[in-house]
Design a protein around this nucleic acid. Sequence first.
DNA 1: CAGTGGTCTAGACCACGAG
DNA 2: TCGTGGTCTAGACCACTGG
Lengths: 240, 240
Amino acid sequence: MTDKRAGAKAHSIATEVRRRIVERRWRQGERIPDEAELAIEFDAARATVNKALQMLADEGLLDRRRRAGTRIAIDPVRKASFSIGIVREQVEQAGLVYGHRVVAHRLSPAPAGIAACLGLPVGEKLVRMRAVHYGDGTPFQLEDRWINLRAVPDLDPASLRRLNVNEWLVRNAPYLHAELAFSAENANRRDARLLQVRHGQALLIQQRTTWNDLGPITTVRVAFRPGHRVSTDGRAAEAD
Amino acid sequence: MTDKRAGAKAHSIATEVRRRIVERRWRQGERIPDEAELAIEFDAARATVNKALQMLADEGLLDRRRRAGTRIAIDPVRKASFSIGIVREQVEQAGLVYGHRVVAHRLSPAPAGIAACLGLPVGEKLVRMRAVHYGDGTPFQLEDRWINLRAVPDLDPASLRRLNVNEWLVRNAPYLHAELAFSAENANRRDARLLQVRHGQALLIQQRTTWNDLGPITTVRVAFRPGHRVSTDGRAAEAD
DNA sequence: CAGTGGTCTAGACCACGAG
DNA sequence: TCGTGGTCTAGACCACTGG
């Protein structure tokens, strides 16, 4: 390969293949040489070439099929990935002093929308918890959470008032599956009051739901403060 | 491993390790046996165990360091990934008839915000193009795009009016790097008119910028129609 | 049917970095 | 320094699926 800079061989093969695609030496829809041929060209084992090509297939650049070979994707469907950790870290990485306040918490029957999110019957008793997270004393994000106690038997409802549930769950209730969606909503009166913005302000909303082997754990609606941007991390990939 | 159902051995090892974490047999911060030991336990080659553990490290569940071994992440920073293809496909997958209309296109000097996105000098001459994408005749998304012709010499500016630039770029200008961010904005008058929504309506905004070896290709602000949700695809991963 | 990718293996060497 | 993960290799067998 022409590119020796990248430490790992598989990585440098991937870089070279990517370059051939970008420079249009290999064009959309074309078939590229098979793994055995590339292994010879790049003086590598087939497993190494396989690793490189799988990376590119994961990025959406290649279309690979047994017997049919490897082709440059016609309409590349690329992927963007977001890192999502605990709120405190996001705030502190922004150079702000973190604070958080539990606004409300009580046992409530699940309304239809929440029940649907979690896949539980309407009216199921869940813990509902609302909290505001602050950066340097100003509201950073608003969290409206429903928790299924059956999936987290270790959680003591009595401690919810003083607990940072976000952190408690991250550390004590690992999940097997998660779903996440972004949308936008106009701030309602409650959002506006808690985030200290005007009524009707456009808010970026993130809805997250997680499951473990005991069932749904929690669903949470996070409203970010106006102007907040959620960005891809590191080597993102996405379509024009 | 106890789980034979999953076809691939590495995958079933990953599943088993994930289960031990979720069942809290292995707890946050604890060190797990090294690759060689797990290889014996699972009756697999070390390379196979390595593959499995790397998958879990990519998901954010494990923290791996040479010499220090592999530990369960204390604050798992999990990842959510979004597939992003061409607009037409999104519309058609929603079961709607696709349509698109170019609203404006002209050569303009880059304003400060756009120049900053692209890393080009303010005032650089770029193609600006605005278009509406429709599903069943109603606005689906609004695209406000700036294109750096230097990076896509093949693009004929004269054809912009009839071209679907989104698709042209995806097919003809593969990129090496991309950045993407979500935010929310209140619809301004122009947004409102083109999307046929009321002024002030909260809109989900996606800003994308791409680069190839010739420099920045394009930056585009996509405004989705109200109520649209952008969701994770497939096996998502994310934090509570 | 046979060519291609998918995966595993056993062994090897190396690079990092904790102790 | 030396244990641990990171990576590569040569070879093998298998599973799809296109022709």
